[in-house]
Amino acid sequence: MRFLQAIKETFVPSSITTRQGTDVLPPKPVLPYILIALTLMTLLAAQVTDFSLIVLIQRLFNFQLGPWGIVKRFFPVDWAYWPEVIAPILETIQMSFLGTLIGSILALPAAYLASQNLTKNKWVVNGVRTTLAVLRTLPILIYAVFFKLIFFLGALPGTIAIAVFTFSIVAKMLYERIETLDMKAYYAIESTGATKLKSFLSALMPEVRPIFYSLSLYAFEINIRYAAILGYVGAGGIGFILDNAMKNLPQNTRTIVILAFIFVTVVIIENTSRLLRRRLA
Protein backbone atom coordinates (compact mmCIF):
# COMPACT_ATOMS: atom_id res chain seq x y z
CA MET A 1 0.00 0.00 0.00
CA ARG A 2 2.86 2.38 0.89
CA PHE A 3 4.32 1.60 -2.50
CA LEU A 4 1.12 2.50 -4.35
CA GLN A 5 0.88 5.64 -2.27
CA ALA A 6 4.40 6.64 -3.32
CA ILE A 7 3.52 6.15 -6.95
CA LYS A 8 0.43 8.28 -6.56
CA GLU A 9 2.46 11.00 -4.83
CA THR A 10 4.87 11.29 -7.75
CA PHE A 11 2.06 11.90 -10.23
CA VAL A 12 -0.63 13.65 -8.15
CA PRO A 13 0.93 15.06 -4.99
CA SER A 14 -1.56 15.62 -2.20
CA SER A 15 -1.89 19.04 -0.66
CA ILE A 16 0.38 20.13 2.16
CA THR A 17 -1.13 21.66 5.30
CA THR A 18 0.98 24.52 6.62
CA ARG A 19 1.29 25.38 10.31
CA GLN A 20 -1.19 28.18 9.80
CA GLY A 21 -3.72 25.59 8.75
CA THR A 22 -4.00 26.52 5.08
CA ASP A 23 -3.87 23.84 2.42
CA VAL A 24 -1.26 24.36 -0.28
CA LEU A 25 -1.38 22.33 -3.46
CA PRO A 26 2.14 21.62 -4.75
CA PRO A 27 2.77 22.31 -8.45
CA LYS A 28 1.71 19.56 -10.85
CA PRO A 29 4.83 17.54 -11.67
CA VAL A 30 5.78 17.21 -15.36
CA LEU A 31 9.04 15.33 -15.04
CA PRO A 32 7.50 11.86 -14.49
CA TYR A 33 5.38 12.22 -17.61
CA ILE A 34 8.36 13.39 -19.67
CA LEU A 35 10.42 10.46 -18.40
CA ILE A 36 7.71 7.97 -19.32
CA ALA A 37 7.35 9.49 -22.78
CA LEU A 38 11.11 9.42 -23.30
CA THR A 39 11.32 5.79 -22.20
CA LEU A 40 8.53 4.73 -24.55
CA MET A 41 10.10 6.68 -27.38
CA THR A 42 13.49 5.07 -26.68
CA LEU A 43 11.96 1.60 -26.69
CA LEU A 44 10.26 2.29 -30.00
CA ALA A 45 13.46 3.74 -31.43
CA ALA A 46 15.47 0.74 -30.29
CA GLN A 47 12.88 -1.51 -31.93
CA VAL A 48 12.99 0.37 -35.24
CA THR A 49 16.75 0.70 -35.41
CA ASP A 50 17.54 -2.83 -34.13
CA PHE A 51 19.57 -1.16 -31.43
CA SER A 52 20.75 -3.46 -28.69
CA LEU A 53 23.20 -2.69 -25.91
CA ILE A 54 24.12 -6.37 -25.66
CA VAL A 55 25.24 -6.52 -29.28
CA LEU A 56 27.07 -3.23 -28.81
CA ILE A 57 29.04 -4.45 -25.79
CA GLN A 58 29.74 -7.84 -27.34
CA ARG A 59 31.02 -6.25 -30.52
CA LEU A 60 33.00 -3.46 -28.89
CA PHE A 61 35.02 -6.06 -27.01
CA ASN A 62 35.38 -8.34 -30.00
CA PHE A 63 38.74 -7.12 -31.19
CA GLN A 64 38.72 -9.27 -34.32
CA LEU A 65 35.33 -8.60 -35.89
CA GLY A 66 34.26 -5.50 -33.97
CA PRO A 67 35.02 -1.86 -34.80
CA TRP A 68 38.56 -2.23 -33.49
CA GLY A 69 39.15 -4.62 -36.38
CA ILE A 70 38.83 -1.67 -38.75
CA VAL A 71 40.74 0.77 -36.57
CA LYS A 72 43.60 -1.76 -36.26
CA ARG A 73 44.05 -1.74 -40.03
CA PHE A 74 44.85 2.01 -39.92
CA PHE A 75 48.16 1.13 -38.28
CA PRO A 76 51.10 1.40 -38.82
CA VAL A 77 50.33 4.89 -40.12
CA ASP A 78 51.77 5.51 -43.58
CA TRP A 79 53.13 9.00 -42.84
CA ALA A 80 55.10 9.03 -46.10
CA TYR A 81 51.78 9.58 -47.87
CA TRP A 82 51.42 13.15 -46.59
CA PRO A 83 52.62 15.06 -49.71
CA GLU A 84 49.68 13.66 -51.67
CA VAL A 85 47.17 14.96 -49.14
CA ILE A 86 48.13 18.61 -49.61
CA ALA A 87 46.45 19.20 -52.98
CA PRO A 88 43.05 17.73 -51.91
CA ILE A 89 43.06 19.58 -48.58
CA LEU A 90 43.82 22.85 -50.38
CA GLU A 91 40.98 22.11 -52.76
CA THR A 92 38.69 21.57 -49.76
CA ILE A 93 39.68 24.97 -48.39
CA GLN A 94 39.18 26.63 -51.78
CA MET A 95 35.73 25.10 -52.14
CA SER A 96 34.65 26.14 -48.66
CA PHE A 97 36.02 29.64 -49.10
CA LEU A 98 34.40 30.32 -52.44
CA GLY A 99 31.13 28.64 -51.43
CA THR A 100 30.96 30.62 -48.20
CA LEU A 101 31.77 33.87 -50.02
CA ILE A 102 29.10 33.41 -52.69
CA GLY A 103 26.50 32.14 -50.24
CA SER A 104 27.08 34.95 -47.74
CA ILE A 105 26.94 37.71 -50.34
CA LEU A 106 23.65 36.35 -51.67
CA ALA A 107 22.37 36.03 -48.11
CA LEU A 108 22.54 39.77 -47.51
CA PRO A 109 19.69 40.83 -49.83
CA ALA A 110 17.69 37.75 -48.82
CA ALA A 111 18.01 38.72 -45.16
CA TYR A 112 16.87 42.25 -46.04
CA LEU A 113 13.77 40.87 -47.74
CA ALA A 114 13.06 38.48 -44.85
CA SER A 115 13.26 41.08 -42.06
CA GLN A 116 9.86 42.20 -40.88
CA ASN A 117 11.14 45.60 -39.78
CA LEU A 118 12.64 46.41 -43.19
CA THR A 119 10.29 44.75 -45.66
CA LYS A 120 6.68 45.64 -45.09
CA ASN A 121 5.22 43.33 -47.70
CA LYS A 122 4.08 40.25 -45.73
CA TRP A 123 4.08 38.05 -48.83
CA VAL A 124 7.70 38.79 -49.62
CA VAL A 125 8.81 38.25 -46.02
CA ASN A 126 6.99 34.95 -45.66
CA GLY A 127 7.96 33.79 -49.13
CA VAL A 128 11.66 34.36 -48.57
CA ARG A 129 11.49 32.80 -45.11
CA THR A 130 9.73 29.69 -46.37
CA THR A 131 12.23 29.30 -49.19
CA LEU A 132 15.10 29.58 -46.72
CA ALA A 133 13.47 27.08 -44.36
CA VAL A 134 12.93 24.56 -47.17
CA LEU A 135 16.50 25.00 -48.42
CA ARG A 136 17.78 24.38 -44.90
CA THR A 137 16.06 21.01 -44.60
CA LEU A 138 18.44 19.26 -46.98
CA PRO A 139 22.06 18.54 -46.04
CA ILE A 140 24.96 19.80 -48.19
CA LEU A 141 25.66 16.29 -49.46
CA ILE A 142 22.27 15.99 -51.16
CA TYR A 143 22.83 19.33 -52.91
CA ALA A 144 26.26 18.11 -53.98
CA VAL A 145 24.76 14.97 -55.55
CA PHE A 146 22.19 17.12 -57.32
CA PHE A 147 24.67 19.68 -58.70
CA LYS A 148 27.02 16.90 -59.69
CA LEU A 149 24.35 15.74 -62.15
CA ILE A 150 24.08 19.20 -63.67
CA PHE A 151 27.78 20.01 -63.86
CA PHE A 152 30.66 17.61 -64.18
CA LEU A 153 32.56 15.94 -61.37
CA GLY A 154 34.97 18.13 -59.48
CA ALA A 155 35.05 21.14 -57.20
CA LEU A 156 32.25 23.08 -58.92
CA PRO A 157 29.22 21.08 -57.70
CA GLY A 158 30.70 20.99 -54.20
CA THR A 159 31.24 24.74 -54.19
CA ILE A 160 27.70 25.45 -55.33
CA ALA A 161 26.30 23.04 -52.75
CA ILE A 162 28.24 24.85 -50.02
CA ALA A 163 27.03 28.20 -51.38
CA VAL A 164 23.38 27.10 -51.22
CA PHE A 165 23.74 25.82 -47.67
CA THR A 166 25.63 28.94 -46.54
CA PHE A 167 23.01 31.14 -48.16
CA SER A 168 20.21 29.41 -46.27
CA ILE A 169 21.80 29.52 -42.82
CA VAL A 170 23.51 32.93 -42.98
CA ALA A 171 20.35 34.60 -44.30
CA LYS A 172 18.31 33.07 -41.48
CA MET A 173 20.70 34.06 -38.71
CA LEU A 174 21.12 37.50 -40.25
CA TYR A 175 17.41 38.39 -40.43
CA GLU A 176 16.95 37.21 -36.87
CA ARG A 177 19.67 39.63 -35.81
CA ILE A 178 18.44 42.49 -38.02
CA GLU A 179 15.02 42.29 -36.38
CA THR A 180 16.54 43.00 -32.97
CA LEU A 181 18.29 46.19 -34.16
CA ASP A 182 17.38 49.63 -32.89
CA MET A 183 15.43 51.30 -35.68
CA LYS A 184 15.48 54.92 -34.47
CA ALA A 185 18.35 56.07 -36.70
CA TYR A 186 16.71 54.33 -39.65
CA TYR A 187 13.42 56.19 -39.19
CA ALA A 188 15.27 59.46 -38.61
CA ILE A 189 17.06 59.19 -41.94
CA GLU A 190 13.94 57.96 -43.69
CA SER A 191 12.06 61.04 -42.43
CA THR A 192 14.57 63.28 -44.21
CA GLY A 193 13.26 61.84 -47.47
CA ALA A 194 15.88 59.19 -48.10
CA THR A 195 14.75 55.98 -49.78
CA LYS A 196 14.38 52.86 -47.65
CA LEU A 197 17.47 51.26 -49.11
CA LYS A 198 19.55 54.38 -48.51
CA SER A 199 18.32 54.64 -44.93
CA PHE A 200 19.23 51.01 -44.41
CA LEU A 201 22.69 51.48 -45.88
CA SER A 202 23.57 54.51 -43.79
CA ALA A 203 21.69 53.81 -40.55
CA LEU A 204 21.74 50.04 -40.13
CA MET A 205 24.61 48.84 -42.28
CA PRO A 206 27.32 49.94 -39.78
CA GLU A 207 25.65 47.66 -37.25
CA VAL A 208 24.83 44.87 -39.67
CA ARG A 209 28.31 44.70 -41.15
CA PRO A 210 30.16 43.18 -38.14
CA ILE A 211 27.26 40.77 -37.56
CA PHE A 212 27.39 39.74 -41.21
CA TYR A 213 31.16 39.17 -41.12
CA SER A 214 30.85 37.19 -37.93
CA LEU A 215 28.08 34.96 -39.30
CA SER A 216 30.00 34.36 -42.53
CA LEU A 217 33.09 33.33 -40.60
CA TYR A 218 30.95 31.01 -38.51
CA ALA A 219 29.51 29.46 -41.67
CA PHE A 220 33.04 29.03 -43.02
CA GLU A 221 33.96 27.08 -39.86
CA ILE A 222 31.03 24.73 -40.38
CA ASN A 223 31.56 24.41 -44.13
CA ILE A 224 35.14 23.30 -43.92
CA ARG A 225 34.01 20.19 -42.04
CA TYR A 226 31.14 19.47 -44.41
CA ALA A 227 33.41 20.01 -47.41
CA ALA A 228 35.54 17.15 -46.13
CA ILE A 229 32.79 14.64 -46.95
CA LEU A 230 31.66 16.00 -50.31
CA GLY A 231 34.31 13.94 -52.09
CA TYR A 232 32.34 10.83 -51.15
CA VAL A 233 29.91 11.64 -53.93
CA GLY A 234 32.56 12.97 -56.30
CA ALA A 235 31.98 16.64 -55.57
CA GLY A 236 35.62 17.53 -54.94
CA GLY A 237 37.84 17.91 -51.93
CA ILE A 238 39.57 15.57 -49.54
CA GLY A 239 36.60 13.21 -49.14
CA PHE A 240 37.53 11.42 -52.34
CA ILE A 241 40.93 10.21 -51.15
CA LEU A 242 39.48 9.52 -47.72
CA ASP A 243 36.82 7.32 -49.27
CA ASN A 244 39.47 5.50 -51.31
CA ALA A 245 41.72 5.05 -48.32
CA MET A 246 38.86 3.45 -46.36
CA LYS A 247 37.65 1.26 -49.21
CA ASN A 248 40.92 -0.29 -50.41
CA LEU A 249 42.53 -2.60 -47.90
CA PRO A 250 46.17 -1.84 -48.83
CA GLN A 251 45.50 1.90 -48.55
CA ASN A 252 43.90 1.69 -45.10
CA THR A 253 47.11 2.90 -43.44
CA ARG A 254 46.66 6.28 -45.14
CA THR A 255 43.41 7.04 -43.29
CA ILE A 256 45.00 8.52 -40.18
CA VAL A 257 47.26 10.78 -42.27
CA ILE A 258 44.22 12.24 -44.03
CA LEU A 259 42.27 12.60 -40.78
CA ALA A 260 45.27 14.34 -39.20
CA PHE A 261 45.33 16.85 -42.04
CA ILE A 262 41.61 17.53 -41.65
CA PHE A 263 42.10 17.94 -37.91
CA VAL A 264 44.97 20.44 -38.28
CA THR A 265 43.10 22.43 -40.94
CA VAL A 266 39.90 22.58 -38.92
CA VAL A 267 41.75 23.61 -35.76
CA ILE A 268 43.68 26.39 -37.53
CA ILE A 269 40.59 27.75 -39.30
CA GLU A 270 38.33 27.52 -36.26
CA ASN A 271 40.78 29.26 -33.97
CA THR A 272 41.55 32.04 -36.46
CA SER A 273 37.86 32.53 -37.12
CA ARG A 274 37.02 32.61 -33.42
CA LEU A 275 39.74 35.16 -32.79
CA LEU A 276 38.37 37.36 -35.55
CA ARG A 277 34.79 36.93 -34.39
CA ARG A 278 35.69 37.91 -30.85
CA ARG A 279 37.25 41.11 -32.19
CA LEU A 280 34.15 41.81 -34.30
CA ALA A 281 31.76 41.38 -31.39
Binding site: T49, D50, S52, V55, L56, L60, G66, M246
Partner: peptide
Amino acid sequence: GIVFIRVQGGAM
Protein backbone atom coordinates in the same frame (compact mmCIF):
# COMPACT_ATOMS: atom_id res chain seq x y z
CA GLY B 1 29.41 5.04 -39.92
CA ILE B 2 31.87 2.68 -41.62
CA VAL B 3 33.67 1.86 -38.38
CA PHE B 4 30.42 1.08 -36.56
CA ILE B 5 29.07 -1.08 -39.33
CA ARG B 6 31.33 -3.65 -37.69
CA VAL B 7 29.05 -3.55 -34.64
CA GLN B 8 25.95 -4.18 -36.70
CA GLY B 9 25.16 -2.99 -40.18
CA GLY B 10 22.16 -0.83 -40.97
CA ALA B 11 20.37 1.49 -38.61
CA MET B 12 22.35 0.57 -35.50
